[in-house]
Design a protein around this nucleic acid. Sequence first.
DNA 1: TTGCACTGCGAACACTGTTCACGTAAAAAC
DNA 2: GTTTTTACGTGAACAGTGTTCGCAGTGCAA
Lengths: 254, 254
Amino acid sequence: MPDPQTTASRRERLRTQTLQELKAASLAEVRERGAVGLSLRSVARRLGMSPAGLYRYVDSREQLLTLLIADGYHDLADHLLAALGTPPAERTAGDGATPEVPVIAGPDDDVAERIRAVALAYRAWSVAHPNVFGLLFGDPIPGYHAPPGGPTVEAMNRVGRALAQPLIEAWHQGRLRLHPALDAEELAGPLAPMVPVTAELPPAVLARLLLSWGRLHGQVSLEVFGHHHWLLPEGCEELFRADVEVTLRDLGVT
Amino acid sequence: MPDPQTTASRRERLRTQTLQELKAASLAEVRERGAVGLSLRSVARRLGMSPAGLYRYVDSREQLLTLLIADGYHDLADHLLAALGTPPAERTAGDGATPEVPVIAGPDDDVAERIRAVALAYRAWSVAHPNVFGLLFGDPIPGYHAPPGGPTVEAMNRVGRALAQPLIEAWHQGRLRLHPALDAEELAGPLAPMVPVTAELPPAVLARLLLSWGRLHGQVSLEVFGHHHWLLPEGCEELFRADVEVTLRDLGVT
DNA sequence: TTGCACTGCGAACACTGTTCACGTAAAAAC
DNA sequence: GTTTTTACGTGAACAGTGTTCGCAGTGCAA
């Protein structure tokens, strides 16, 4: 896999470099002011460029946001995979500026510990980058829909696979308890489109994956968006850990 | 309780009336274009007013949004209470324009059915008003924090109480299974501030309430924000129902 | 009837995303 | 080595935004 930094022409090198700077400056702005606070003129000032000059690198503000969204998914996926002990074989697309290293999972056969690891990493990344979390999982851009095979969906898939991985391991070990409600044939139809992305898993397992992600996400979402910040003034990591334990018990892996 | 429509002076009547129109027009704009798409000049045009005139009724765009947020919480709470069969004794603050009537709960002693009713009503309201849902639970306004005793928090509390009500009933009937992880003494401290709002409930029950809300919310949030819309093209009510059943089983009420 | 607080308006300011014509510098073609 | 084409960057402009200010009227109370 050739490195574009060395093989590409001088033009292309400069181009990708300033595009990286553009995205970095925009990401910084999103980090401090949120997605709605991203101003093209402001990032142009940061780069010492004219506002019009940005349009040589980006079609619109909206497209710039989708670039940041894809990068954000990749960054989150990298952290989840790191928490699972996966070596950085996959490319790291985010800027990787997160200081703290997430919990390293235990031995590979300890599924419960691996599930804890991804869950805690999901929460740790989210509370560390609340505005990026909001960019990824908050209000969608009103009219926008990600192109089906595009880089956003691919990046999102990496997150999904990282979250699903330990659960799939548990299922392969026969340690994933399934619930009769998940075997309803009404689920087979709606879940069919998932099959190409998650290999040949029975619908009940697919449902388990989606529902587990939903539980995890709900807890993190409420905390990051400050919706029980007025109930629980401090960050509630203990509550989150308790939730993970309850879910582990419910999944049957502990 | 005197009706301000009749007792107040003519001035005040006109004032509250145009304020209602202002909020209604703003809510309509939010409904179609989302919270970020709310434009003061646009609602001024709808009302046939000058943009500057709005500032006689509203301090800023941000304050107008918080008014809509409080109304949104009240509207959601009304729907949850209606699903529980509560008569409209509490005032209805939303515009109540939701067409479909949520599921009416079964007999009062059937806690499982009552929990199903609130959960389904929560989802039904959310998918019916995705942009208002985003206003309530999406990205928070960057620098904003709701004033602790203000109307926003009070409205939010009504939602919380409606969600908690059937679970508390289940606990009173001794049918709520608690998990040992919820009894950890680390939770007692962080949960202490909740006590004034939810009477004298043991920390394990409080934790159950928060965690159950989180699960419910995560599933709804992912669906409303379209985060598995590319996996499950159709709305996944079946998946949600399955989640509710799994949760009911986990809670021990079924 | 006289004062006064309230309501609304037009103009203005500072800001935003985006487009367009216009140079200039680098790469490509001859 | 010269010429042509392509890419880059700019300043000015347009339409739109939230917000403020000074100035008219109008309804209410003394």
